[in-house]
Design a protein around this nucleic acid. Structure first.
Length: 173
DNA sequence: GAATAGATCCGC
DNA sequence: CGGATCTATTCA
């Protein structure tokens, strides 16, 4: 069950978002299967935080792939993303849903972060180096998503860029 | 400085 | 459908 490396995240963001489905997120003592993701890609994506260019907040997305991007939304919820693509290209995958070992399903980015305890303290962490915060391959799903069923829909909670089907969600076979 | 919109969630 | 609650960004 190898930890996902930089190369995995340096890929095309849509590919990474799809392939993250079924992978295992490790955060401290928690382990959970990723069930839902969304892609935010580049300055031409109006829903991406980097659409307005490089700022203090978005500079993580311009950095190396495999780093965490955590921010506070609506004054009360954190959202956890993983930076993708090459250096200087701003893109990330939002983790929207995780199923824990306890069969508990954390459905929604805010809920997920609240339950696991992810905050801006965990912003800009290298997930390929951290020993407590990373993604690993599942034994069962070594060969991509061949056996995994997922649907594509518009992204949730945004007013622009809704024409793109950049949300990926696992469904029961 | 002040105003406002925002990748959410919960309860009514 | 509105309120909670705070910050990054925009506007004056």
């Amino acid at each position: 069950m190898p930890k996902l490396n930089r190369k995995f995240f340096e890929n095309n963001t849509l590919t990474v978002a799809k392939e993250l489905l079924g992978k295992t997120l490790v955060f401290n003592n928690y382990q959970g299967i990723v069930t839902e993701t969304e892609a935010y890609i580049g300055e031409n994506d109006p829903a991406c935080h980097a659409a307005k260019g490089r700022t203090k907040r978005t500079e993580v997305m311009y950095g190396k792939a495999g780093f965490s991007y955590v921010y506070l939304i609506y004054g009360m919820y954190y959202c956890f993303n993983i930076v993708t693509e090459q250096q200087d290209f701003p893109a990330a995958v939002l983790i929207r849903g995780v199923k824990l070992k306890s069969e508990q399903h954390l459905d929604g980015p805010g809920k997920l972060c609240k339950h696991l305890g992810i905050t801006t303290e965990h912003n800009k962490i290298d997930l390929t180096k951290s020993i407590y915060f990373y993604i690993k391959d599942n034994n069962k799903n070594q060969t991509h998503n061949k056996s995994l069923n997922f649907i594509q829909t518009p992204r949730i909670g945004i007013k622009v860029g809704i024409e793109q089907l950049w949300r990926f969600k696992l469904v029961k076979p």
